[in-house]
Amino acid sequence: MKGLFYATSMVAMAAVITSCGNGGAKKAAADSTAMAADSNVVVLFDGTSLDGWRGYNKDTVPSAWTLEDGCIKINGSGAGEAGARNGGDLIFGAEKFGNFELSFEWKVAKGSNSGVFYMIQEVPDTPSYYSAPEYQILDNENHPDAKLGVDGNRKSASLYDMIPAKPQNSKPFGEWNTGKIMVYKGTVVHYQNGENVLEYHLWTPEWQAMLDKSKFSKDKNEKAYNLLLNCGGDQKEGYIGLQDHGDDVWYRNITVKKLD
């Protein structure tokens, strides 16, 4: 994993550090303009608009997702995962990505839960997480999910319900964390606050074995199992999305660097 971390760091773009409030939105817009000079970089969120975003299996942005001081915020309904009529998962619907490096920042309110999905296939009448691996977003100290699963595989930056993030270096609720997901020819690496916390490989016997042991196994959820087994579909690409789990969560500085 250390060798892969070194290799990918050579293509990683510098993190953009802004603050919500106190001019954070203006600085985010300026920084995103500078990054756009790199033709391989796609600015998914520039701090000023939700252009390119929409609800999963929807044509518009659900009203529970708003702009707040240069951030994307999901205003929690308290109704659980996509439980409110005006909520639901949010996807960047303007483009699908196959080999990429996704960078973002996130913070949660006390006890909050969300997730970053990648390689999403939009399937009618099917939740987004049926087809997409999840980078868990969580208040580890105050949400019950942190004590579920196996060996901490539902804590922040984990591959949800499959691989725990180690070291577990997330910051407390109310503080900003940096996240990064690298996907390259089936190899996937999660980063949290500057550290490589897990690695796995899609479309391999090991990937199938992980699914077999998870809540997405064929016995427990055959539809999700089949979609995840062929993650990314025939083109090996998909949408990037943010989860509505009914809690207050903020995201900012969301960019993708395409990898050849």
Rank of each mutant, 00 (worst) to 15 (best):
Met1Phe: 12
Leu4Asn: 15
Ala7Tyr: 10
Ala12Met: 12
Ala14Cys: 04
Ile17Asn: 14
Gly24Asp: 04
Gly24Lys: 05
Gly24Ile: 03
Asp31Met: 15
Thr48Arg: 14
Leu50His: 02
Asp51Trp: 02
Ser63Arg: 11
Leu67Tyr: 09
Asp69Ala: 12
Gly83Arg: 04
Leu90Trp: 13
Gly93Val: 04
Ala94Glu: 11
Asn99Pro: 07
Asn99Val: 02
Glu105Tyr: 13
Gly111Ile: 06
Phe117Ile: 04
Met119Thr: 02
Val123Gly: 05
Pro124Ser: 04
Asp125Pro: 02
Thr126Phe: 02
Pro127Ile: 00
Ser131Cys: 12
Pro133Gly: 06
Asn140Tyr: 04
Asn142Ser: 13
Asp145Lys: 11
Gly149His: 09
Gly152Trp: 15
Arg154Glu: 07
Ser158Trp: 06
Leu159Met: 08
Ser170Cys: 10
Thr178Lys: 13
Gly179Met: 09
Met182Gly: 07
Gly186Val: 11
Val189Arg: 05
His190Glu: 07
Gly194Cys: 06
Glu206Gln: 15
Glu206Asp: 15
Met210Asp: 04
Lys218Met: 01
Tyr225Phe: 15
Leu228Lys: 14
Gln235Asp: 15
Tyr239Arg: 02
Ile240Gln: 10
His245Glu: 15
Val249Ala: 10
Arg252Asn: 04
Asn253Phe: 00
Thr255Met: 11
Thr255Trp: 03
